[in-house]
Design a protein around this nucleic acid. Structure first.
Lengths: 199, 199
DNA sequence: CCTACCGATCGGTAGG
DNA sequence: CCTACCGATCGGTAGG
C-alpha cells in the first residue's frame, strides 16, 4: 500500500519522457534528437533517463508499437463488421483520421523515423504495416466491386486515400490549418477523398 | 582546351556524389547517413569526398536548393499566364507532379530532412516554401471565386492537394504502385484531386 | 537522481 | 585520392 505511490510516479515519469521525446522527434527527427535534448526538456541529466527507459531505441519501439497496435485493432474491428462496403471503407478512413489526430506527435514517426528501428522490431513493424494496408486494400476492392466507388487500380486508390490522411501529420505543410477543429478536419478529408474539389 | 576534360570529370563526380547521397538519404535519412556510407557507395575513402564537396551540409543545401528553385520557377510561370483559374490550378498541380516524379530522390528530402538545414539556408528554404504555398493558395482562391471548384477553406483545400501529390515521395506507402507509368500516375492523381473516388 | 567516465562514431583537416 | 589523425558528441554504464 505505501509503495504504490512511488510506482505510480515512476510510471508517469516514464510516460512523460515518452511524450516529450515524441514531441522532439517531430521537430528535429529521431536521429538528430540526443538523450541530452530529451533530458533537458524533462529537467534531469541524460544519464538519469536510463532509470525509466532501457535505451533510446526503446523509446522509438514503444511509441511506434503502441501506434501500430491501435491502427491494427481499428482495421480488424471494421473488417469483420456487417455493413455495406462503402460504409466500411468510410469507417476505416474515419478510424485512421481519428487515430492520427489523437496521436499527432507519434503519428509523425510513421513518416521517416520508423527507418531507425532495429531488428527484430523493424520487421515486426513492416509486417504490421503491410497487413494493415492489405486489409485496407481489401475494403477498397470490395467497394469497387460493389460499384460504391469508381473502378481503378486498388493500390493507387489506397495510396491516394492514405496520402490524404497523412496531411494530418504533415501539418507543417500549411500551418494555418490548425485553426480548424478536429471534426471539421475529418469531414473535410472525407469529402475530399470521396468527392474531390470540383464544384 | 586540354584541361576541359579534367574539369568535366570533377563536375560529374560531384554530381555523382550528390545523386548517390540523395538515394542514401531516402533509405536512411540525412542524419543517419554518414560520410563513410556515401564514400562506400562512390568507392573512395570518406576523406576524399571533401575534394568535391565542402561538407555534408552542402550536399543537403545543393539538393534542396535546386529543387526549391524548380518548384519556384514552375509556379511563377503559371501564375502570370493568361488562362482560366481552373486551367491554371490544374497546370500548377501537374507541374508539381512532374517536378516530383523527375526528382523522386531529392523530393523525398522535403518530407523531413529539410529540418537538418542550418541557418541561413533554413530560413531561405522556409521563405521559398511559404512563397510557393501562398502563390498556390492564390490559384485555389481564384478557382473558388470563379466557381471552378467548390467553396471551402482555401488552406485546407491546398493541404489536400499537396498531400495528394506527396504520395509520390511517400511511395513506400504502397510499393506496388511503382508498376504504374508516370503518365498514368499523373492522370490518376489529377482525377482523384478533382473528382475523388466516388462512382 | 547525479558525477564521472568510456568506447564508438562522427564530420572534418593536414599533409603528402 | 589516401593515411593518419583530431576534437566533439553520442549513447550508455558504474557506482554511489
Amino acid at each position: 500500500m505505501t509503495n504504490t505511490k512511488p510506482e505510480e510516479q515512476t510510471l508517469s515519469k516514464r510516460e512523460f519522457i515518452l511524450e516529450e521525446a515524441a514531441k522532439l522527434f517531430v521537430v528535429k527527427g529521431f536521429k538528430a534528437t540526443s538523450m541530452k535534448d530529451i533530458a533537458a526538456v524533462i529537467g534531469v541529466e541524460a544519464a538519469s533517463l536510463y532509470n525509466h527507459i532501457k535505451n533510446k531505441q526503446e523509446i522509438l519501439v514503444v511509441l511506434l508499437g503502441g501506434l501500430a497496435d491501435r491502427f491494427s485493432i481499428g482495421i480488424h474491428e471494421i473488417v469483420v463488421k456487417k455493413a455495406s462496403s462503402r460504409e466500411k471503407l468510410e469507417e476505416a478512413i474515419r478510424m485512421h483520421i481519428k487515430v492520427s489526430l489523437e496521436n499527432r506527435n507519434k503519428t509523425h514517426l510513421i513518416l521517416e523515423d520508423w527507418k531507425q528501428l532495429e531488428e527484430p522490431e523493424l520487421t515486426r513493424y513492416l509486417t504490421l504495416r503491410k497487413e494493415y494496408q492489405d486489409l485496407f486494400k481489401g475494403l477498397v476492392i470490395d467497394a469497387i466491386n460493389s460499384g460504391a466507388i469508381k473502378k481503378g487500380n486498388p493500390e493507387l486508390i489506397l495510396n491516394h486515400i492514405l496520402s490524404s490522411v497523412r496531411s494530418i501529420y504533415n501539418q507543417y505543410l500549411y500551418s494555418n490549418t490548425s485553426k480548424v477543429s478536429a471534426q471539421e478536419y475529418e469531414e473535410s478529408i472525407i469529402d475530399f477523398i470521396f468527392q474531390g474539389i470540383s464544384g
